[in-house]
Design a protein around this nucleic acid. Structure first.
Lengths: 115, 115
DNA sequence: CTAGAATCTCACGTGGACGTGAGGTGCAAG
DNA sequence: CTTGCACCTCACGTCCACGTGAGATTCTAG
């Protein structure tokens, strides 16, 4: 598959896919003419990248963690990073939950006055 | 209180506080000599700003929502924004939870192999 | 064979939340 | 009165995940 179809199927821009290659996250093959050739499971990789970005990981972290998302095998270094990121995400969820509660209070108070 | 003490008490930089003023989020008074004079509850406001930033809100949104975080009263526009942001945050928590589960699986699999 | 998509490689632009000097002023202490 | 730290105002720099042309090449349909 060429870059345009991967872009459509995964919902990211063509530019983003080239950027991922630049960062070493998803490096496709090349056609004789020099065009990028993606395999089927590239779509899944893109989704994983997006998911990790959304969780606040940097390109560097994603590059270090993507291999074990594919293979399921981890080095000691990767396991340490995984646990660190887990903790970060857990803390983030906790804080978001608190923020949500605070906003809920505001809305509820407004609803009560409004009724 | 002057800017340095607010910075220490709230854990943000002096530059950040000046930036908040620039964005209209937290506008302190001025001493005769032109120095910023913050009230006691500025610390709480700073924490609120940080919390909203951490939840992914822009300065503009924070500026629109900070008043009702203080007073507890909301306009229709603010209530609509509150509900929209709540939904966004809820979705964000959901996605983070899924990501967390995925990382947990990886760590668990690695732990089982390691034991 | 040719028109026109689609893709290619530079390479500069963007937006947001500040960081970081440069050069000048306010204020409490000795 | 002066030392010296905290504060002031510009104003350019930073980081990151791309956006956005410009100009050239490749691929596909007729």
């Amino acid at each position: 598959m060429r870059i345009g179809e991967i872009a459509r199927r995964s919902g990211v821009s063509v530019r983003a896919l080239r950027y991922y290659e630049e960062q070493g996250l998803l490096v496709p093959g090349r056609s004789p003419g020099g065009q990028r050739e993606y395999s089927q499971d590239a779509v899944q990789t893109v989704r994983a990248i997006q998911q990790l970005y959304a969780a606040g990981l940097s390109s560097r972290r994603v590059a270090e963690l993507l291999p074990c998302m594919d293979t399921g095998t981890t080095t000691d270094h990767q396991r340490a990073m995984l646990k660190a990121e887990r903790d970060r995400i857990r803390a983030q969820i906790k804080e978001l939950t608190a923020t949500l509660a605070r906003l809920d209070e505001l809305v509820d108070a407004a609803d009560r006055r409004g009724s």
